[in-house]
């Protein structure tokens, strides 16, 4: 028997209103493809270019009470960013990572819109100037790309190096921000 959309919506609202949800998520369209977005009651906890299997990862990290539900505020800020109207995000963030990752991601968040920085420079900012490679790993595992702008971190020789969403997406974001000339 099919659940009517009204009944389904009513249940999801009641579950959220009662505070029973560890993580809510949605899948949203963007100019750089489908994005998986997720929030805990504390804040945004995941943006992923990879949609499949993310719900299970969320269950492992944040708790099994995972429910799909629109994340209007996150979606709105992302839309504004992709339209070029938003240069900083005002979303609370729930970051559950190791201390070194947290320190690096904190510095990453300070890299301004429209500019780039290097892995080595970010390493120096957290007091570990020789840890460029480790910083690369932190970028690679960034749980909230776009909002935590790992696309702004490039190699010392100016090469784009790598990106979770693929190099064409990294290039597109830097072009959108005016940090790179359109190719």
């Amino acid at each position: 028997m099919n659940i009517t959309p009204e009944l389904d919506t009513r249940f999801r609202s009641a579950a959220l209103a009662e505070g029973l949800v560890d993580v809510r998520y949605d899948i949203t369209e963007s100019p750089v493809g489908e994005l998986f977005i997720a929030s805990t009651p504390r804040g945004l906890c995941r943006i992923s270019y990879q949609v499949e299997g993310q719900d299970e990862q969320m269950a492992r990290i944040f708790g099994v009470r995972v429910l799909r539900s629109p994340l209007d505020e996150v979606r709105r800020e992302l839309d504004e960013y992709f339209e070029g109207r938003r240069h900083e995000f005002d979303l609370p963030i729930d970051l559950r990572v190791a201390p070194f990752h947290e320190a690096v991601l904190h510095e990453l968040a300070q890299v301004p819109y429209g500019s780039t920085d290097t892995y080595g420079s970010l390493a120096a900012k957290v007091g570990k100037p020789k840890a460029a490679r480790a910083v690369g790993t932190v970028m690679n595992r960034n749980p909230i790309p776009i909002v935590l702008p790992c696309h702004r971190i490039i190699g010392a020789n100016g090469s784009l190096t790598g990106y979770g969403g693929g190099l064409p997406v990294k290039r597109a974001l830097l072009e959108l921000e005016g940090a790179m000339l359109p190719s």
């Binding site: 659940i3 009944l7 389904d8 299970e56 969320m58 269950a59 099994v64 995972v66």
Partner: peptide, 21 residues
């Protein structure tokens, strides 16, 4: 492993409604 609640809900919401009907 306990599946994310969304999957459990997707698997059983319909048949449980049928049962309660």
């Amino acid at each position: 492993t306990i599946p994310p609640f969304e999957r459990f809900y997707g698997d059983h919401a319909g048949e449980v409604l049928g049962y309660l009907r």
